[in-house]
């Protein structure tokens, strides 16, 4: 491990961190704009042309708000909660392959911070840590609505993580690797995994909605029942962190969906026109972001179309529908992969 390698990695980490924050910031703007357009409104248009400075205005507002910590709360945990949420949200971007490797002066520069050979496990580990932020925050607030929101968040996460994991196992069976870089590289052109695993994709995207606590699964922060859910007691930038973490999660989920099922940085026919690996890397990055933007749009589109689930419906869907479906998917995938053996077993 040379010094230049280290420096490269540090720069890459910083760039990706900056991009993540930027995308999350502008997701808040996009969310408000898209919501407005879907409802025949115009949305924020006062701060700057078309309102593009709205996120800045929001941030200023968040910082200027009075910071309140309830006297009955557990002070330390109350502060740690949003921090954990934000930290875990930012940590997930590490294993995403943002593009194919660059080749400058004979040295390979992969556009992936680290290609862990257990990338998927890492991803799921970190995502499930994310619920601790919500749990800690909700519990430390010492408020029944916050606590209820936190409990809902954790039970929802646990329920949907099972189905999500099972749908991913089927994917891992077909791709034969746990490394995200490998999964992305294995889908050149239009050989996207979504065509191999359509049911798995459906289950995965539904679970992704639930994992990011977005509508129609936004029960942890359901305004109509729980005031504000787990962040009822939060104000100022601590609230901002919770909300921001949700947008980062959405961005990462979109990146993961694109990588797992939609070929990541791959695009059909591109290899025919572009041969220089550096250009390919840049284009791959652009393609990946196009896909990510599309999925972020879908996240928002769904949120402003569907009403919220009832809690029992949520649990029913998770345990009685998605888990059996994903097991079925697993069995069918396994059967298909072993079709020759099964054929020989019966036919001899």
């Amino acid at each position: 491990m040379t010094l230049s390698f280290l420096i490269y990695k540090v720069i890459l980490v910083l760039i990706i961190f900056a991009i993540t924050l930027l995308v999350a910031t502008y997701s808040t703007y996009a969310e408000r704009k898209i919501a407005a357009f879907l409802q025949d409104r115009i949305g924020p248009d006062r701060a700057g042309p078309f309102g593009i400075l709205q996120p800045l205005a929001d941030a200023v507002k968040m910082f200027m708000k009075e910071e309140m910590i309830p006297s009955v709360s557990n002070r330390m945990l109350f502060i740690i909660g949003p921090g954990v949420c934000m930290l875990t949200a930012c940590m997930t971007g590490v294993v995403i392959p943002w593009g194919p490797s660059m080749n400058i002066g004979g040295t390979e520069y992969p556009l992936q911070i680290t290609d862990l050979n257990i990338g998927i496990l890492y991803l799921f580990g970190v995502i499930s840590l994310g619920v601790y932020g919500i749990m800690i925050g909700g519990w430390a607030s010492n408020n029944k609505f916050s606590l209820l929101g936190a409990i809902r968040a954790s039970s929802q996460m646990i329920s949907y993580e099972v189905a999500m994991g099972l749908s991913i196992i089927a994917l891992v069976m077909t791709t034969g690797t746990l490394s995200l870089g490998q999964i992305a590289a294995d889908q050149p052109g239009a050989h996207w995994n979504v065509f191999i695993q359509p049911l798995g994709f459906l289950i995965f995207i539904i679970c992704a909605f639930a994992e990011t606590n977005r509508a129609p699964f936004d029960l942890p922060e359901c305004e109509t029942e729980l005031v504000g859910g787990y962040h009822t007691e939060y104000s100022s930038m601590k609230l901002g962190f919770f909300l921001f973490a949700e947008y980062i999660n959405m961005f990462i989920s979109s990146a993961v969906i694109s990588t797992f099922y939609f070929g990541g940085y791959n695009m059909p026919f591109i290899a025919r026109f572009v041969h220089d690996p550096n250009w390919l890397a840049v284009l791959g990055f652009v393609f990946l972001f196009t896909k990510i933007s599309f999925f972020i749009f879908v996240f928002m589109w769904v949120r402003w179309t569907l009403p919220r689930f009832r809690y029992d419906q949520l649990m029913n869907l998770g345990w009685k529908v998605l888990i059996p479906l994903s097991i079925l998917n697993l069995v069918v995938t396994g059967g298909w992969m072993m079709r020759m053996e099964i054929y020989h077993f019966f036919i001899k």
Partner: peptide, 13 residues
């Protein structure tokens, strides 16, 4: 439902 909301996206505001 999503198609309906998408149509509203392009409606005159």
């Amino acid at each position: 439902g999503m198609i309906i909301t998408f149509k509203h996206f392009f409606r005159r505001k």
